[in-house]
């Protein structure tokens, strides 16, 4: 009988990401009513101590040249090995480029139901239930599972406030072998951006600029400095991206990134439905727009009617003066 929760923990060069702690904390809370243990899986790393503190009773690790780059096949075989070892009722990961590539393959391999990009998780009648947004967040619904194992990915920042309460654990290395199929995708390169940035999808503060920013130079002179002063990551509307002011990797919205920060500052963004699709679950939304009737104000927690060329530099100065930290 499957039981417990296996959390697939992502890491950056060996250090577990914030999402790993969020999910472990949530899994520990769920397991109180779901029963069973919380275990963790690290693929291509072995920094396990903190994972125990956040709730993992066992930390499985899979390492080796085949696994360190994190290709989809390597993930599927590592996750299969961890499932064989832990026999979990739920496998939980964070929505990311890794899980989008690997979780559906795993679901097909083991014949499991899957719910993607969930924003709420709870236990009902002894089984996991996930709520997930659909139609770009214009509706949401509950997903229930009839398979032995439920595969779930959760939107980053859905479960803030992870707390440590357990104790450090060592690693339980797993022996996983890649089949020819799982080895077929080779990662042959990684192109770095000009400057390192926090992954937009996981950022907890975002400052975004729209079409009226008017040039890449202005984007660099206006939006990025405000982001830096607020300890935030820069984002952009599609109109700004398509005009070449910011790279596609910074686009927020239906055909860009779905973000879920605690603070989203929209600078000269009208609030088109496709932009809202990417940021409507942000906890606090600030809109700066010179048109008092701009639709973005209907969604804003705080609104400022004004010209970004005046308000944005003033806000950045004020943030620097008050010493806002990341």
């Amino acid at each position: 009988m499957s039981n417990g929760i296996l959390v697939v923990c992502e890491h950056e060069n060996g250090t577990p990401k914030k999402t790993a702690y969020e999910l472990l904390s949530k899994a520990r809370e769920l397991s109180a009513s779901l029963g069973g243990d919380v275990s963790a899986l690290l693929i291509g790393a072995s920094t396990t101590e903190m994972l125990g503190e956040y709730g993992a009773a066992t930390v499985y690790t899979v390492e080796g040249a085949d696994f360190d780059a994190g290709g989809p096949g390597a993930w599927v075989s590592a996750m299969s090995a961890a499932i064989a070892a832990a026999n979990p009722a739920v496998v939980l990961g964070s929505t990311s480029d890794r899980t989008r590539a690997a979780f559906p393959r795993l679901a097909a391999r083991i014949g499991a139901g899957m719910a993607s990009d969930c924003t709420e998780l709870f236990v009902d009648g002894g089984a996991i239930v996930a709520r997930r947004p659909m139609y770009a967040g214009k509706a949401s619904a509950e997903v229930r599972f009839s398979s032995d194992v439920a595969l779930v990915t959760a939107r980053p920042n859905s479960f803030p406030g992870a707390t440590a309460s357990g104790s450090a654990v060592g690693s339980t290395p797993l022996d996983a072998q890649l089949s020819d199929l799982d080895a077929a995708v080779k990662i042959v390169g990684l192109e770095e951006p000009k400057s390192a940035v926090v992954d937009l999808a996981e950022a907890s503060r975002i400052v975004s600029g729209g079409r009226p920013v008017d040039s890449a130079e202005n984007f660099d002179a206006l939006i990025r400095p405000l982001a830096a002063a607020m300890g935030a990551t820069a984002g952009a509307s599609r109109a700004a991206v398509d005009s070449g002011f910011a790279p596609h990797s910074e686009q927020v919205g239906q055909t860009g990134k779905v973000v879920n920060p605690s603070l989203y500052i929209a600078c000269a963004i009208s609030g088109a439905i496709q932009h809202l699709a990417g940021m409507r679950t942000s906890r606090v939304i600030v809109a700066i727009n010179k048109n008092p009737d701009a639709p973005i104000f209907e969604h804003a927690t705080y609104g400022i009617v004004g010209d970004i060329f005046e308000v944005v530099p003033a806000l950045a100065d004020e943030a620097r003066k008050q010493g806002i930290s990341a």
Binding site: S146, F297, H299
Partner: peptide, 19 residues
């Protein structure tokens, strides 16, 4: 393996404040 139900519209946001 999955069933979907209990649909709801997005949560209402509390009214905002203009500064």
């Amino acid at each position: 393996h999955v069933s979907i139900g209990n649909w709801s519209p997005p949560p209402e946001r509390p009214p905002g404040r203009m500064l």
